[in-house]
């Protein structure tokens, strides 16, 4: 943990402790410490300090968030092949499964990204909780979006969804009311989404993901220090637009399945 510079300080006064500041000046013979400039601490490895700072954690969240966003985009493009012949998406799934080590490297990288994203989020959330032990009796927000205030909710729910989603469509452990057929992506999707609550859960989670993205996509720039008086407002709008597109892209599939456009 941090060590702090030792100086002649008067904080006690404000913290209401019984310390009396009745002394005259510190004895000049030992006045050496007063003249010394701030003490320095031994050189630390920068990545450690960086990670320890809340700003550093936010950078980690931004970078890992950006990686996951890239995945989300790629995944959506893959999914949209559902609108083509079943062979297309099945071939695509086959292709992905046969990447071999590459697949495991990719999975490893994303797992690490998710882990770091979650770890940083949890640590920061705990920090914030400690920072306001007593809340307001009345609290009115005047300058923020719903999305930005609910990141700590939308995130975990999306995580729960991802786990469910992997169990359903990747591993096939949970596939209610139908038989999971390894390799037959198209039919797994159709049979999966024909169950109304699976679709509803999917749509709900994707909407939360969109909410999460609509703030995260903009906030990540802020965290890595990219802001511009004119571009930043545009970026905020762009984040919402992109998040909306992603939501629409994803949820169109269960909706199409439910409506019978995809059979």
């Amino acid at each position: 943990m941090c060590r702090f510079a030792t100086q002649n300080r008067v904080e006690e006064l404000e913290n209401g402790s019984s310390h009396t500041l009745r002394s005259t000046f510190p004895d000049t013979t030992t006045g050496e410490q007063l003249m010394a400039t701030a003490q320095v601490m031994p050189h630390q490895t920068d990545p450690v300090t960086f990670w320890q700072s809340s700003n550093g954690k936010k950078v980690v969240m931004a970078v890992t968030g950006a990686m996951m966003f890239a995945f989300i985009c790629g995944h959506m493009l893959g999914n949209l092949q559902m609108y083509e012949a079943p062979e297309h998406i099945n071939a695509y799934g086959h292709f992905l499964h046969n990447l071999g080590e590459l697949l495991w490297i990719e999975r490893g990288v994303f797992l690490l990204a998710i882990a770091l994203h979650i770890l940083a989020a949890v640590q920061l959330a705990l920090r914030s909780q400690v920072a306001r032990p007593i809340g307001y009796s009345r609290s009115q927000m005047i300058n923020s979006t719903y999305a930005s205030r609910t990141m700590y909710w939308s995130g975990p729910i999306v995580l729960a969804f991802i786990i469910f989603h992997l169990l359903q469509f990747t591993a096939g452990y949970i596939h209610p009311h139908a038989q999971f057929v390894a390799g037959d992506v198209y039919n797994n999707v159709v049979s999966g989404f024909q169950v109304w609550w699976v679709s509803a859960w999917y749509i709900f989670a994707i909407c939360l993901l969109g909410l999460h993205l609509s703030h995260g996509l903009w906030s990540m720039f802020q965290s890595v220090g990219l802001a511009h008086p004119r571009l930043s407002p545009l970026l905020r709008k762009a984040a919402v637009a992109i998040a909306t597109l992603i939501v629409l892209g994803y949820i169109s599939i269960p909706i199409s399945v439910l409506l019978g456009f995809i059979k």
Binding site: Q7, N8, R9, V10, L13, T24, M35, T37
Partner: peptide, 26 residues
């Protein structure tokens, strides 16, 4: 203050001047 050459004492109000042998001493 950071350098330690000034000690800041906020929320404290001077109430009187101490004059010793004609000199202001505190």
């Amino acid at each position: 203050i950071h350098a330690g050459s000034v000690t800041m004492i906020p929320r404290t109000e001077m109430q009187d001047l101490i004059v010793v042998d004609g000199q202001a001493r505190g």
